[in-house]
Design a protein around this nucleic acid. Structure first.
Lengths: 200, 200
DNA sequence: GTGTATGCCAGACTTTTGTCTGGTATACAA
DNA sequence: TTGTATACCAGACAAAAGTCTGGCATACAC
């Protein structure tokens, strides 16, 4: 009755099907897998899926619909792209963002994108119009490129720690370093990625 | 009994919640929306959702679980990241890629990522170690930054059309332009995006 | 043979989830 | 006043989707 299928062959196809569905639209339901492969029993689809979970090729949330996911999801997160950030208004700027950017990430990070204004970092290959991806973190290390709120506008500079104080260094000889006093500067986060879209 | 909520305010929050969920993990179920906003009736969540559909801000598949989607999904594509490309081997290089990158795209394009080697384009803010996203297209316009196969290695240069011939210009005074004869140079495609990962 | 594993099926149960009917309270305009 | 709209709630029903028990057939090792 049962036509013989080499071990693992169907499962491989099931894996590719599920993977494709997860990446391109929505994780399939068990019955959607069943129908895609014309299994006559739901259980057959379920067995393949549970097997893939046992093998570590998929992970799932028990009992929830469309609960199958990829183990280390390419970790694509959509982060808000901000036009400009003004004093104190990071939260507000995120609410009113221009759009969203896909970013690879481990998921639990708080990221945002920011459009670059000015030429103070051209020496580091960061040009006006570029987009920087910023991870929100209060403290950063000396040498990191950071986004800081100085006065009432956000700027991008290289951070230098000097004793108890901090310095914000441009990377362009035409600009001079900023030496803020403690209370007039907030570090919004560290630049983890730079992007430049050459069209559109 | 009912605390008064300004018209549309809750709906706005519901929209943002749903959008975030769709982009970052999985579309929520109606009851997940209900719980997120602590509505005491499922119907309240459903009314907001159906309203958003009526307004065209969401679309849905009737009867299916987690059926709410965004109208014009950002279209995220995963493109292969190549380490290096050698003569004739673009197809082969794509097969043996180092990994995949999420890229926003209209879908029908043939894209690949390429790691930058050398300093010939530092003047355009393209540094060694950066990744360029390339759209495969035989012909490009003068002024485009392109990836060309000259000899047996791929290089990134700015394209200049001069009469019938082409010139490949570096963007760094320490390098000299390449003036290839027609048959010793293939344009693999145009650089549409530049990325730099500052950690990991 | 026996035992074990895989691949598949039949049918049912249970939970989750989508859907629906009818209701209350507030605000606003005719 | 009446009517209409929004925002919300209560409780239910029905479909979708996850889960489970038991079974059969083939293959392979002991």
């Amino acid at each position: 009755m049962t036509p013989f299928t080499p071990p693992g062959e169907t499962r491989e196809k099931v894996y590719r099907f599920v993977r494709r569905r997860i990446l391109e639209e929505l994780p399939p339901t068990v019955r959607e897998v069943q129908e895609a492969f014309r299994f006559r029993a739901v259980q057959t689809a379920r067995e393949h899926l549970e097997r893939l979970v046992a093998e570590g090729r998929l992970v799932k949330t028990h009992g929830k619909s469309r609960g199958y996911r990829l183990p280390q999801e390419p970790g694509t997160l959509f982060v808000p792209l901000l036009g400009r950030v003004q004093a104190g208004g990071l939260r507000a700027a995120i609410e009113e963002c221009e759009g969203y950017l896909p970013v690879q990430s481990r998921g639990s990070e708080e990221l945002f994108g920011l459009r670059v204004q000015g030429e103070s970092m051209t020496g580091a290959g960061i040009l006006p119009g570029d987009i920087v991806i910023v991870r929100q973190q209060g403290e950063s290390a000396s040498g990191d490129i950071v986004v800081a709120l100085v006065g009432d506008e956000a700027t991008i500079k290289r951070l230098r720690l000097r004793g108890n104080g901090i310095e914000l260094h441009p990377e362009n000889p035409a600009f001079t370093p900023i030496l803020p006093r403690g209370d007039e500067c907030t570090i919004l986060g560290k630049v983890v990625e730079v992007r430049r879209y050459l069209e559109g």
